[in-house]
Design a protein around this nucleic acid. Structure first.
Length: 937
DNA sequence: GCAAGGTC
């Protein structure tokens, strides 16, 4: 049997199709892994690496005294299986094979992945011949050729990959642990360090520092407004930017009407369509239409897996000759882009565009299947459309522009105007994502004069360099050789998830800055892109057998040892420095009450709030929504009124919740409540605010005397204010309770706001669950709730009220639950029922039920029912159950009617009893008869 | 709990 190993399932499938000629190809699954079988051949796809490197298990404890971060440098490295199903399958198939061909991608990682597969197979079959097929595209030509002339694994090439693995693991793990431990950050807050992520982060931090230290330079622009054929347009002074204001003013003062056209230069410009998409260009283009790098790749991956577009991880910008472009166009004719496709077919350029990069791994990203807006949904459709239109653009003719340069004079001052007009849109007709900036000016004649409608002198300032957008960052990474087409966007995602950076364009957090500052001081090698470049050249030397993997790794370890020498000497300083900067991350600004520092504080549970550094001396605090709404972080925006950083709640997978200035929000939300106090007026309110008393609670906690002096009230007024505040607080608590209740029982619906419903309820005089429960369903209409929902709400409200009454009566929660389950909801109901029935129905002991009934009856002013002894009840029960045909179900019904023994039964009126129990009268009569004979006899 | 690189 011939076993062929491909790098991924999709490649295995296509290789099998080509080699089998699509005849008798059987697709199956073994051990959960897809297989492709024809004749005597089995093709299996890996999932990239199926094993990974790691340290021995004893190194797992970060805080181990023996296995310190530094000890990882020389720790033994072992391989561990990460894809067990695949590993098991290829080992099993390898045992039966008499030939194995490794057909992974033709690059360094592919060779290493091939070697891993080889070693797995060898562990079960030492003798089987192992060949290597090398191809640079999965096309019939390439594949057939590769299998006709197979070679063997290139161990030097694989060793270059292993060197990378080893170095990345050792540097990354040891430095990550060191920095995290020094800063005392564990769990989800570790501080990671790596050959690619750290230089990328350093780039972002550098840019931020550049922006901060940027000193704007003033400059002046001089322009004139004029008009021709009713078209108003502007001409600029030929000098361009003036750096001296006097010069600009002088030039303006020399500018007199009329404007005379002195020269007109017209030319034509060809505008080539963009090159086909490689991964980076795709991410950039997707970024322009609003997708973050990670999101764009996730969607592309999805479209690829479903056959709409080609493999999204590629460095190639040249369509291979084997790509059947006309066939793709024919496929696309059937889509929404049909008319564009036909236009392209009629106007195709002689050869498609291409970029600088040509690699042979995969073709540029292009559409492979037809799709409709409906089947894809909004986001996927937009990405698909982008890929389709880009593909069409690369086949379309150039756009043609008419360029105009007009020179003018106003008195002696030279002015110019640049205009452009799109003559033929060419590719721009099909590619709508790159806006054609037309700048039309009316047609002019040399020597003609124009009116001078206005002369404008603008004072401006030079701007700092912009922050990196995610896609620009990925472009920079590519330029610097950081990461690969498959990993660059993941690195950005990693920096975001570690909270080193935030937003798009990206900004470093203080944590991110602190880590880079520390690394630059003590381990700057890891913060420089050069580390990757050096590693690449060392890998090249290994590939060429000029150096060994061992040699390269040893040199790298030696360098890392030296770095650790420095790091360990300054361990305390580094830790303290990072911790200090991180603490700053939570600081919002000055406390309005005491001048201390307001900080975001997170408690152990899900609580978070803003507190003062002066606590307990200063108790000023602001409540924040719980952590389930997102973790509170500060943003760089500062409130102009309170000089406090704005606050934002961040939660995974959800758009952040911008709280804004927490103090503004705090004041606004509590002002409403303060107005509930009858004697509150604008004057008192503003005096309270001026004294930083913002909430009703704050007010109730104050002494009358203090309040009087603080607000300039008489002691009597102050006392009254406090009493009224206390009453308002009671109302607020009721409302808060009602709000929670409504939230729990009213399902959220689109376009309905809970706060509005609540406002309307309060306005209707419904301030607590009790008054809600006693409202008519129709009366709730004004709140915007449907009648059905109102009924549910009222029923639940009644339930809750009754439960609370039971609670107030002193019935424990466990028993209350049992009454509820037995559908005994109100205190009156309980009192009306025979105790024996209740006991039987709920499973509570008779004594317990009697005790509860006693309390309940007393509470609602009823007569307490007389007691039964357990013995009497028990005797009655055995008596009743001894009657022929009377089972447990009947017993309960009789209990319900107050019949607890044969004596009661004999005395009962059969017809009435039948009515109240639902048992047929004839049956009752039978029971009575037999009861009479039993009990008397 | 750590990196970067494959792939899903």
């Amino acid at each position: 049997m011939h076993l062929i190993i491909a790098e991924k399932n999709i490649a295995a499938h296509r290789i099998a199709q080509i080699l089998s000629g699509e005849k008798n190809l059987r697709m199956g699954k073994e051990g959960g892994v897809p297989t492709y079988i024809f004749e005597d051949t089995v093709v299996v796809g890996l999932k990239g690496h199926v094993v990974d490197v790691d340290f021995l298990p004893e190194y797992a404890d970060w805080r181990s005294k023996e296995y310190t971060p530094r000890s990882l440098i020389d720790a033994p490295i072992v391989k561990k299986v990460t894809e067990k199903k695949i590993v098991d399958l290829i080992r099993k198939l390898g045992k039966k094979a008499d030939l194995v061909t490794i057909a992974t991608d033709y690059d360094t990682e592919g060779e290493l992945i091939g070697k891993e597969a080889c070693e797995i197979i060898r562990s079960g079959n030492k003798r089987v011949p192992m060949l290597r097929a090398r191809f640079s595209a999965i096309t019939p030509q390439e594949i057939l050729h590769a299998f006709q002339q197979p070679s063997v694994l290139d161990l030097a090439l694989a060793a270059a990959g292993e060197a990378r693995q080893e170095i990345d693991l050792v540097w990354g793990a040891s430095l990550t642990r060191f920095i995290s431990l020094a800063a005392r950050r564990g769990g989800t807050n570790i501080l990671s360090v790596g050959r690619v992520q750290s230089p990328t982060l350093a780039m972002i931090v550098d840019r931020e520092k550049e922006i901060e230290s940027f000193i704007p330079e003033p400059y002046w622009n001089l322009r004139c407004v004029t008009e021709k054929d009713r078209i108003v347009f502007e001409v600029e002074h030929a000098h361009g930017r003036f750096t001296q204001e006097e010069e600009a003013i002088a030039a303006r003062n020399r500018t007199y009407a009329p404007l005379v056209v002195t020269e007109i230069k017209e030319s034509e410009k060809l505008d080539r369509p963009p090159a086909p998409f490689d991964t980076t260009a795709f991410i950039v283009a997707a970024g322009r239409i609003g997708f973050g790098a990670g999101k764009a790749m996730q969607i592309a991956e999805d479209l690829y897996m479903n056959g709409y577009i080609s493999y999204p991880r590629t460095d190639n910008t040249l369509y291979p000759k084997t790509l059947d472009i006309s066939a793709i166009l024919r496929t696309l004719r059937k889509t929404e882009f049909g008319s564009d496709v036909r236009w392209v077919e009629e106007h195709r350029r002689s050869s498609p565009t291409h970029g600088k990069k040509e690699s042979t791994d995969h073709p540029p990203i292009h559409p492979t299947g037809q799709a409709s807006r409906q089947e894809l949904g909004e986001d996927r459709w937009r990405v698909y459309e982008l890929v389709v239109r880009r593909f069409l653009a690369t086949l379309s003719p150039d756009a043609r522009w008419k360029m105009m340069k007009v020179c003018l004079r106003a008195s002696e001052e030279p002015y110019i105007a640049n205009g452009s007009r799109l003559l033929e849109p060419g590719w721009r007709k099909v590619y709508l994502f790159s806006e054609a900036q037309e700048d039309p000016i009316p047609s002019l004649l040399e020597g003609s004069t124009l009116p001078l409608k206005d002369v404008i002198l603008d004072a401006k300032e030079t701007q700092p360099p912009p922050r990196y957008s995610q896609s620009r960052l990925i472009q920079r990474m590519e330029e610097l050789g950081l990461g690969t087409k498959s990993t660059r966007h993941e690195v950005v995602g990693k920096l975001l998830s570690r909270r080193y950076i935030q937003g798009n364009p990206v900004r470093p957090t203080l944590v991110g800055r602190a880590v880079i500052d520390a690394l630059e001081d003590y381990a700057d090698t890891i913060t420089k892109p050069e580390m990757t470049q050096t590693l690449d050249s060392h890998m090249q030397q290994i590939k060429e057998k000029k150096r060994t993997r061992k040699d390269v790794a040893e040199e790298s370890r030696y360098m890392l040892q030296e770095i650790f020498q420095e790091l360990e000497e300054h361990r305390e300083d580094i830790g303290e420095e990072i911790r200090e900067k991180i603490a700053e991350e939570h600081a919002l600004g000055t406390c309005p009450v005491c001048g201390g520092t307001l900080r975001i504080r997170q408690m152990k549970g899900s609580g978070q709030f803003i507190g003062c550094s002066g606590y307990p001396r200063c108790t000023f605090n602001i409540n924040l929504p719980g952590m389930q709404w997102g973790k509170a972080v500060r943003t760089e925006t500062i409130c102009p009124d309170h000089s406090l950083h704005h606050v934002r709640l961040i939660r995974k997978g959800v758009r952040p919740w911008e709280i804004g200035c927490a103090l503004c929000t705090h004041i606004a939300s509590h002002t409403e409540s303060l107005r509930l106090i009858p004697m509150m007026n604008e004057s008192i309110l503003s005096r309270l605010h001026a004294r930083h008393v913002y909430t009703v609670t704050d007010l109730t906690g104050m002494g009358g005397e203090r309040l009087a002096t603080l607000l300039g009230l008489t002691p009597i007024e102050a006392e009254r204010l406090i009493v009224e505040a206390q009453e308002a607080l009671v109302l607020l608590r009721k409302r808060s309770d009602l709000r929670k209740f409504v939230r729990n029982h009213l399902p959220p619906r689109r376009g309905r706001k809970q706060t509005e419903i609540m406002t309307r309820m309060y306005a209707a005089g419904i301030n607590d669950v009790r008054s809600l429960a006693h409202t008519e369903p129709a009366a709730l209409k004004v709140t915007g709730i449907s009648e059905k929902e109102a009924e549910v709400l009222l029923a639940e409200g009644k339930k809750l009220c009754n439960d609370r009454i039971f609670r107030d009566i002193g019935i424990p929660a466990a028993s209350r639950k049992k009454y509820m389950e037995a559908n005994i909801q109100a205190p009156e109901e309980l009192c009306n029922l025979p105790p024996v029935y209740v006991s039987h129905r709920t499973g509570l002991s008779l004594d317990t039920v009697m005790r509860h009934m006693e309390k309940t009856c007393t509470f609602i002013g009823r007569k307490v029912p007389s007691k039964f002894s357990n013995a009497v009840v028990e005797r009655g029960r055995t008596g009743l159950l001894s009657l022929p045909g009377l089972g447990d179900g009947m017993l309960e019904r009789l209990y319900y009617a107050g019949i607890i023994g044969c004596e009661d039964l004999v005395k009962a009126d059969p017809r009435k009893l039948a009515e109240s129990t639902g048992i047929p009268e004839s049956k009752i009569r039978e029971f009575i008869l037999s009861a009479a004979s039993h009990c008397t006899g």
